[in-house]
């Protein structure tokens, strides 16, 4: 019986993880988070940069 070399196995874990986080992102988009992120990112956050 021949065993398949472990080096040739495709790892599934990264694809599963990428898929899960893409679903997270899609949920965020459906909730309207990008508009909130955009709103924050287009304003100067003074406390963030240590001023004010």
């Amino acid at each position: 019986m021949t065993k398949r070399s472990p080096e040739k196995k495709i790892r599934k874990a990264p694809f599963v993880a990428i898929f899960i986080f893409l679903v997270f992102g899609a949920i965020g988009i459906s909730l309207g988070e990008p508009s909130r992120v955009l709103e924050q990112a287009t304003q100067i956050c003074l406390s963030c940069i240590g001023i004010g």
Binding site: I18, F21, I29, G32, E33, V37
Partner: peptide, 29 residues
């Protein structure tokens, strides 16, 4: 997003960071 989570939820907005964590996680994976 995390700092404003209470205010967002009170206003019926579920801005809990899914979009940002999704992007970070996808890049990380």
């Amino acid at each position: 997003l995390l700092g404003g989570i209470r205010l967002a939820l009170e206003n019926g907005q579920f801005f809990v960071g899914f979009y940002v964590i999704g992007a970070m996680g996808a890049i990380g994976s």
